[in-house]
Design a protein around this nucleic acid. Sequence first.
DNA 1: AATATCTTCAACCGCATGTAC
DNA 2: GGTACATGCGGTTGAAGATAT
Length: 317
Amino acid sequence: MRTPVPSSVTKGICNSREEESELRRGPWTLEEDTLLTHYIARHGEGRWNMLAKYAGLKRTGKSCRLRWLNYLKPDIKRGNLTPQEQLLILELHSKWGNRWSKIAQHLPGRTDNEIKNYWRTRVQRQARQLNIESNSKRFLDAVRCYWMPRLLQKVEQNCNSSYPLSTLDSQTHVIASASSTNFTVDNSSSSESFPPQTKLAQYSNLASEHSSSVTSPSVLSTDSMPISRQPEFLENPAIISPPLLDNTVNNNLILSDGYYVENSGYHMDGFNPASMPEIGTFGDSTSECQMAEGNWVFDYDMTDTLWNMDDIWQFRL
DNA sequence: AATATCTTCAACCGCATGTAC
DNA sequence: GGTACATGCGGTTGAAGATAT
């Protein structure tokens, strides 16, 4: 993390009011952070303009609010996003788009700014490198057919080692099967298949790491908002399962079409469209995992990207 | 070692929305 | 309903660090 650098630059705002011309901008100093933190500890959050004034900060209320919410607030979680969190971001973004604040609500300790930055710097960069519009169907396909299953798989591995899925929900026993993404619920009264988003919701609990403000499976049932676009694979889990889970050797995956998937790493990396299965590989005409039009054009060096260096889709057997 | 380029992310801005009067 | 102000949100910027040359 970057430590605040004292800023000698006080860009005066050309404003008629002298008071405003003294407003500080730029990086916060330790002293300012201390003032803000102490003031909030005594008086609480809110009334930001007043707070800025009475705390003795030459900042706007907005600036104070932002500093507190994105940096100083005690429950801010630091460090890299976990696979669970990355998965959740992808999932929620596919559902809600750039509703960063809404997405952040389901990742306790993470700020909307952080998630937004993550999306722009990591996800959109990959799209750029692939020469795809990040909001295009093609890119969404790549995300949901490659990143998400990979992350899901990684999360599952983590869960198997440290969080038995069966403990996630006392009412619902999730039978985690490495051979299928068509998750099965056994809730004693009925047995049914449910799509990954339900399972993702379980992972959202993990992502929250025991937070009391944890999301529940209902989170992803999105009862509170209209869903304009539901990724097809969420409704049809079979879409993603066949290519990923055909076989394993030394914990690596061998796809039905001969592609080899090295089972290491879990960042957002590891997608090499050069090894994209042929159109139709995933099954019948309902396959959503074929890239739109199937015409991938890459004008960059695939060896120089996060997508495939250490991770997956490395070579044909 | 010096310089250029790339990446990250804290902070800013403008706009939308909420609320009080 | 109109106005003023506070708050929240999403897009964008630019400084600083990291990496490449």
